[in-house]
Design a binder for these strands. Structure first.
Length: 971
RNA sequence: GCGCAAGUGGCGGAAUUGGCAGACGCGCAGGAUUUAGGUUCCUGUGCCCUCGGGCGUGCGGGUUCAAGUCCCGCCUUGCGCACCA
């Protein structure tokens, strides 16, 4: 038997932790009351001063289980949530599962096991791992996207979006312009003749259109629409992907398969309608600048003009330019190889007197164009990246007409112009654009300088300089009979040019976006079915609310048909298409048409669908009448009275989740999609908040070292031994040298450390404290298992300060706290409060350790000091805090105990150390009263021996910053 | 190439507004307790030193009585974007 049977060991910690976890669960300790809805408890809500919604990114329940990196953010939000509970807030914190997803489906394909089974098994494992961490989650709200009660609302939201159009003219209640509105209102406008029909139906009245034609018109406006468009097709995955899911080198983010552009009929979300608001409203949320920038770049808004160049083919070439001011310098045009006008512009024979390089060595333009198009199509994006950026292209044989001066400019095709951006065609201004300059040089094209640097008398011109001039300057060579830009600066010239073009119908000022609409359908089994059916004419109809959810059918085979990853000519075949009985149905949609035969949509929604809005369901998960009761949404997420820090003056607060913590890998995808859906729901009147995430904090990652032997094989990191230190350190495994690398934790790297290992060896509280003390939350940092003992020692000392290790008796004394300890205590309270509130958990833990160490040095710990410390430890190490709190004689949980408040009057020191510097170097120290005056301190300092010795030649100046510093500068 | 962030002991990291660089922890060294190991406790721990002091926050300049912190120029690493018209 050990001499210290009541020592805080991993084993005892484990007993304490699981016991408290059971108690919390049984008592519903973390249930947050709602003001309305099925759980309405306004009385309980009324007992709180304020409310707080804390959110973690929605986890996917991976079969691999968690490693020690995963809980970092969950612990951080838990500490923050617990701290806020202790300051009197009604805190909503919970976690559900983003449970649709590719891995479960792929596993199902391999094993024949239903993905639901795999997914649910994984959730059980993950839930156990997370529960053991002691997170203060409201377990009633642990929703799962795969549950029909949940995806019923995912489908409902889809309907809302499908049944809406974007009215760019509408004025919102918040004063902004542009709003989603029900499609029925658009139909009414057409019916009443208030809105002109699209060009296709020009001259006809709404009533004269057939049903199908009316449907077609409306489909052109819906925010969710099916369209035949170029999409990213990954034959190896058997599905199409959104632009956001494609890596820089043109492969799938999942699985790294080649992706091809193919024309397919697919569901799209009209996210581009929201481009401006998505960009502008970033100003109103508190997010890292880095993430805001990434979203702005993705949206890629640029201001410029559309300009038309007449061509012999009849149809003009329309280009987008951000520099309409440079139109006089346009000396040629370039179309993307896939541009639709290319065939019409390709002439039968080369014009006379053209440089040989224009022809690409071909006998006719047709041959040259065909060869170039083929080469461009064959090149994957990867190959385009790898090649050096020498400009290539061929001449079409045609000339376009410059709208400003009638010059004939040759039209080329070249792969440096992308079909996917702008209009897929550019006017090339070699003097002002480096790419155009390079092309012009390569193809012996004229270069006209139309902008000169300001005050540059002897500027030799761009040709002499060998590069385009892209700086600010003044216009030259830019005039015709009715427009003279010469001498004007850039900004004025742009405005003048746009006005001139618009007057003549040659172009117009416009805004272009890089962002495209969001491809929303996938050819997979394990996702939400679309609540859409097609009638025998092929028209899409929404399944009415009353018939939701449209549940996933059972199928014999979960896999979409996959193909040779390189087979670009293949096309998708979704697994649901094989469920014939499910696909072909007779339904009464309640639209007056009675029972009809329909075919169900066989694509499913992407994984983003369920994760786009889960935070709303957290607010009211049991509500069967609405996705969230309006009062609950308003309570938890409604706009706050003051805008976030850093928001421009005068903006309204958009509301949203008070704190969202998660990795930056979702900066564009999830965070953008969720914002889009949220804004649609706001526009349609379902929400009071305009943004989903009022404050987003991007956490760092916990990384790890991995070791490889000389053959490059990973060896178990836990068994590697280190020799030496610093730069001369070397590593061996079983005596053989191994090389260290730094990066992710992964099975194949043999460096995974799991939370379960840590619970077993140290306990959950120790693990929590360690993760929080490793460094700032936003920083990535390496995991080092051996350092965790520091956190264990801290909790052991804390335990020992309260509990006798031999007898198990509480050993605090009922005496008053001495003045020194009291000062340390109040200083700790002040610092820890501030640190917890600002997510500075590493420094909070450091303060707690300092205070605990101070108590350790006392002969006996006074109750007040112990209780204060226990309360402050509560957020970061909740189990030991509860246990000590209870042993100290409290019957109520410490979870809602008021957080200690610092007494200002107790913070003041009796004396402070004043540093005496001579010429800025510390040369002496003296204890002084904190209230010493500047004059007193100056005299005191000048009287010191060291100062006298240094100032024999006199004093030049003395800087006094009472009471902490005096700096004497000798003459 | 463009943009952003970061470089502090052997390691992770601390340092309101410019005002004692290295809090706290790991590791390491020494001591006490212990048969021993472990544990626990105490002491020390930036580098150099002739023990007066000198030098130190990626590098080089600058501003200042005073710079990790501000300014200019570089270097390195990480992240994002990348022929975006």
């Amino acid at each position: 038997m050990s001499e210290t049977p009541h020592r805080y060991t991993a084993e005892l910690a484990g007993q304490i932790e699981t016991a408290w976890q059971d108690r919390w669960e049984a008592q519903g300790t973390y249930h947050a009351p709602n003001p309305a809805g099925p759980w309405a408890d306004p009385e309980a809500v009324g007992r709180f001063d304020d409310h707080l919604l804390v959110l973690d990114m929605f986890p996917y329940p991976s079969g691999a289980g968690l490693h020690v990196g995963h809980p970092l953010g969950y612990i951080a939000t838990d500490v923050f949530a617990r701290f806020n509970r202790m300051t009197g807030r009604n805190v909503l914190h919970c976690l559900g599962y983003d449970a649709f997803g590719l891995p479960a489906e792929q596993y199902a394909v391999q094993t024949g096991q239903h993905p639901r089974k795999t997914t649910e098994d994984n959730i059980v494992i993950m839930a156990r791992q997370l529960r053991r961490l002691g997170l203060g989650h409201d377990d009633r709200r642990a929703i799962r996207t795969i549950d029909p009660d949940y995806y019923r609302w995912t489908q409902w939201i889809f309907q809302q979006i499908w049944n809406a159009w974007y009215d760019t003219e509408a004025v919102r209640p918040d004063g902004g312009t542009g709003q989603a509105r029900p499609i029925a209102e658009l139909e009414a406008q057409f019916e009443a003749g208030e809105r002109v029909l699209p060009q296709e139906y020009a001259g006809r009245a709404w009533a004269d259109l057939t049903n199908a034609e009316q449907g077609h018109v409306l489909d052109g406006f819906r925010l969710a629409y099916a369209s035949e468009a170029p999409v990213n097709w990954a034959p190896g995955l058997g599905t199409v992907l959104s632009n956001e899911e494609i890596t820089n080198d043109g492969r799938s983010e999942v699985g790294n398969y080649p992706v091809f552009r193919t024309n397919l009929r697919q569901w799209m979300m009209r996210i581009t309608a929201y481009a401006d608001r998505l960009a502008d409203d970033l100003d109103r949320v508190d997010w890292p600048d880095k993430v805001k920038t990434m979203q702005r770049n993705w949206i890629g808004r640029s201001q410029g003009a559309r300009v038309d160049f007449a061509t012999p083919a009849g149809e003009a070439i329309s280009v987008f330019t951000t520099r309409p001011d440079t139109l006089f310098g346009a000396t040629f045009m370039v179309l993307a190889p896939e541009h639709p006008l290319v065939p019409a512009l390709t002439t039968d024979a080369w014009p006379a007197d053209i440089p040989a390089v224009w022809t690409g060595g071909a006998a006719t333009p047709g041959e040259a164009i065909a060869a170039y198009q083929l080469a461009a199509a064959r090149k994957s994006d990867v190959e385009r990246q790898m090649e050096d950026k020498t400009k290539t292209g061929v001449f079409t044989g045609s000339y376009a007409t410059s709208p400003v001066d009638g010059r004939q400019v040759p039209v080329f095709i070249a792969d440096y112009v992308l079909m996917g951006y702008g209009t897929g065609a550019i006017m090339a201004v070699p003097c002002g654009d480096q790419r155009d300059f390079e092309f012009a040089t390569e193809f012996e094209l004229p270069i006209i300088d139309i902008i000169a640097p300001r005050d540059a008398g002897d500027w030799p011109g761009t040709v002499a300089e060998g590069k385009a001039f892209t700086g600010d300057g003044v216009m030259v060579n830019s005039a015709n009979d009715t427009l003279d830009l010469n001498g004007l600066p850039v900004a004025e010239s742009k405005a003048a040019m746009i006005a001139w073009l618009e007057e003549r119908g040659l172009g117009e000022g416009t805004i272009n976006y890089r962002m495209r609409d969001w491809l929303f359908s996938r050819q997979r089994y394990w996702g939400e079915p679309f609540p859409i059916v097609f009638d025998e004419d092929g028209r899409a109809h929404a399944v009415p609310d009353s018939q939701l959810p449209v549940e996933l059918p059972e199928v014999p085979d979960y896999s979409p048909k996959t193909f040779d990853p390189e087979d670009a000519s293949s096309s998708p075949e979704p697994p649901l298409a094989r469920a014939e009985d499910w696909v072909n149905v007779e339904l009464d949609l309640g639209d007056g048409r009675g029972v009809q035969r329909y075919r169900r949509e066989t694509n499913t929604m992407p994984q983003w669908a369920g994760s786009c809005w889960y935070y709303l369901r957290y607010l009211d998960p049991a509500n069967m009448q609405a996705l969230v009761d309006a009062a609950n949404e308003d309570y938890w997420m409604g706009p706050r009275s003051t805008p976030v820090e850093g928001a421009p003056a005068g903006v309204r607060d958009p509301g949203g989740v008070d704190l969202y913590v998660g990795g930056v890998e979702h900066a564009v995808l999830h965070l953008l999609y969720a914002r889009f859906w949220h804004k649609v729901l706001y526009d349609l009147g379902h929400l009071s908040s305009e943004e989903p995430f009022r404050r987003y904090f991007s956490q760092g990652y916990i990384q790890a070292y991995a070791f490889r032997d000389e053959r490059g094989q990973a060896v178990p990191a836990a068994e590697v031994e280190e020799q030496g230190e610093g730069e001369s350190a070397s590593f061996t495994w079983q005596g053989q040298p191994v090389a260290r690398e730094y990066g992710k934790m992964g099975k194949s790297l043999k460096n995974i450390v799991t939370p379960d290992d840590m619970y077993e060896q140290y306990g959950a509280d120790t693990f929590r404290v360690y993760e929080m003390s490793m460094g700032p939350l936003e920083q990535s940092k390496p995991w080092e298992t051996r350092a965790i003992v520091g956190s264990q020692r801290f909790l052991q000392r804390l335990w020992r300060n309260v509990v006798d290790e031999e007898t198990g008796e509480v050993r605090v004394v009922e005496t008053a706290v001495d003045a020194d300890t009291e000062r340390v205590m109040h200083r700790t309270i002040a610092a820890v409060r501030e640190d917890y509130a600002s997510l500075g958990f590493n420094t909070a833990v450091a303060r707690l350790i300092e205070f605990n160490n101070a108590l350790t040095k006392l002969d006996a710990v006074p109750r007040e000091a112990a209780e204060t410390l226990v309360k402050m430890v509560g957020p970061v190490a909740p189990h030991i805090a509860e246990e000590l709190w209870s042993r100290l004689g409290h019957t109520e949980s410490v979870v809602y105990a008021p957080f200690p408040e610092a007494d200002e009057t107790k913070l003041v020191e009796e004396t402070v150390t004043c540093v005496i510097q001579i010429k800025g170097k510390v040369r002496d120290r003296v204890e002084v009263s904190p209230s010493i005056t500047e004059d007193e301190l100056r005299e005191l300092a000048l009287a010191r021996d060291k100062v006298k010795a240094a100032t024999e030649a006199g004093v030049r100046t003395v800087i006094v910053r009472a009471p902490r510093l005096v700096n004497v500068v000798p003459a």
